[in-house]
């Protein structure tokens, strides 16, 4: 009976502490000014992109051959491109594509990385060695070269393909983070205690160990989004990613080398969008790292 009482109390006590920690982390994040600026800029970009059909009077693929290479003006704040399409509109629609790719690719990467890291760290032994050698191997491939090969293979990539390929080429850091936290936690007393009261592997992994590795995963994921956005834009710039006429921030710059002497704005604005998004995400990642730093959490809890 006594054991049951402990078992009933433990989860709620744990939850209370957890909430406290997250609240404190949130307080610290709020004090990080660059991160808050990042949230505002990125939020604005994402909102405007999501609301693109409402914000803009033009369509993303609407040609106007009477208005090609118009410089920035009141009706076209960022000018028009080689087909007379409104650049600002295309940047907003491109934002939908580029931001979603960043988010989704990282979701794939985090999922794969967490599963691999969990299996390796929790079960150890030969499974661990085999998986970690595989991670070593994945790390040793030049990522851009592989991306280019896949781009050639698929003759340019659609959104689901690029998300899968990017995700499957960038899960390794997460797997190492997760594995490390499993190795350091799986023999601790609280895990043993959970096992003693009859918790199965699944429960120990999901309820007891994984929550402890969430902080580094969140930071890695945030910075991973920035990396994925840059990777997608590079690939689409090279003509192997998202194919026109669907705009992405990268493929809008594809013709820039040929056009930049007559219409430099076509080279400047889409890149500026990438830059703003990536800077914001990096700032947010920095803020999250400071806020979630496990040393702080341990000391304060």
């Amino acid at each position: 009976m006594a054991g049951q009482a402990v078992a009933l109390r433990a989860p709620s006590a744990e939850r209370a502490v957890e909430r406290g920690q997250w609240q404190m982390a949130f307080e610290r994040f709020r004090m990080h000014r660059p991160a808050i600026a990042g949230v505002i800029v990125l939020g604005t970009l994402a909102l405007l992109s999501a609301a693109a059909p409402i914000v803009s009077p033009y369509g993303p693929e609407k040609n106007n051959l009477l208005l090609i290479y118009e410089g920035p003006s009141l009706s076209h704040p960022m000018g028009t491109d080689s087909l007379g399409r409104d650049l600002a509109t295309r940047i907003l629609y491109g934002g939908r594509v580029s931001l979603s790719i960043g988010l989704l690719a990282v979701t794939v990467a985090i999922t794969v990385g967490t599963v691999v890291g969990t299996v390796a760290g929790f079960y150890g032994r030969w499974i661990d060695s085999a998986l970690m050698r595989f991670v070593d191997m994945m790390y040793s491939f030049p990522r851009l070269f592989l991306l280019i090969l896949f781009g050639v293979f698929f003759k340019g990539m659609s959104l689901p393909v690029i998300v899968t390929v990017l995700g499957l080429l960038s899960w390794m850091t997460t797997s190492r983070l997760v594995r490390a936290s499993f190795l350091s936690l799986k023999n601790r007393e609280f895990v043993e205690a959970a096992r003693c009261i009859g918790a199965r592997d699944r429960r120990i992994i999901i309820r007891h160990i994984l929550p402890n590795s969430i902080a580094p995963i969140i930071v890695a994921a945030t910075l991973g989004i920035a990396g994925a956005i840059i990777a997608e834009s590079t690939l689409s710039f090279l003509g192997l990613g998202i194919q026109p006429p669907t705009p992405s921030w990268g493929n809008m710059l594809k013709d820039a080398p040929a056009e930049m002497n007559i219409a430099p704005w076509t080279a400047i604005f889409p890149g500026l969008a990438i830059f703003l998004a990536v800077v914001s995400i990096n700032f947010i990642g920095d803020g999250l790292r400071d806020a979630l730093d496990p040393h702080h959490v341990v000391r304060r809890a």
Binding site: I230, T234, F237, L253, A256, M260, A267, I268, G271
Partner: peptide
Amino acid sequence: TFAFLSTPTFWLGLLLIIAFGL
């Protein structure tokens, strides 16, 4: 440094060409 780390290499290259080349 933060800005340069957040700039895609290809765009930085294009900007340098526009500014210092063209």
